[in-house]
């Protein structure tokens, strides 16, 4: 009688998964069938199960009685460090707040000044209104807009004296 072929890696992985309850549905049924029909797979399963059970012999280590106390003690410097960092952050925010407040008040001051105090016209604006400025005295003598429009009529002075 020939030796049964050893399990392949995939077959062994499936067998271990089956023992761990991780194989479901068709795969689980196929493994059950294999186990009931193949003594070699059954022996392999038994050895793997027994090996797994041997791990129960390992002692379950317990933490020392002062474990909680020592852990909380190590928390102390951490908390102090966090508090320091929070304080530094608060100071930074406070400083930034001051800088922001200064910038806002400077802008408000500038805008308010421009709004309240009329600005002297610049050279360009003066040049733009040069003709009006030159005829200022004449314009001042015009009392109504209708009269000014009447002066512009072509049949009064011809085209030469257009006000525009």
């Amino acid at each position: 009688m020939s030796e049964p072929a050893p399990l392949s890696d995939q077959e062994r992985a499936d067998l271990v998964a089956y023992l761990d309850g991780e194989l479901t549905g068709e795969a689980a049924r196929a493994m059950e069938a294999k186990l009931s029909l193949d003594p070699a797979t059954r022996a392999e399963a038994d050895a793997l199960r027994r090996t797994w059970e041997l791990l129960d012999f390992l002692p379950q280590p317990q933490p020392s009685l002062r474990f909680t106390h020592r852990t909380l003690e190590r928390l102390g410097p951490l908390r102090a460090d966090e508090q320091q960092r929070r304080q530094r952050w608060r100071m930074r925010c406070f400083g930034l707040g001051w800088v922001a407040a200064l910038l806002v008040s400077a802008w408000v001051g500038y805008a308010g000044y421009n709004w309240l105090v009329p600005r002297e016209p610049g050279e360009r604006e003066l040049l733009q209104d040069l003709r009006i400025l030159e005829n200022k005295r004449l314009y001042e003598r015009i009392e109504t807009l209708d009269f000014w429009r009447a002066l512009d009529a072509p049949d009064l002075f011809g085209d030469e004296t257009s006000t525009s």
């Binding site: 890696d9 062994r12 992985a13 067998l15 271990v16 998964a17 761990d20 991780e22 793997l48 090996t51 797994w52 041997l54 791990l55």
Partner: peptide, 11 residues
């Protein structure tokens, strides 16, 4: 699955 299979085989 493969890791545990190899581990159990080694054990």
């Amino acid at each position: 699955k493969s890791l545990l299979s190899r581990a159990r085989e080694n054990l």
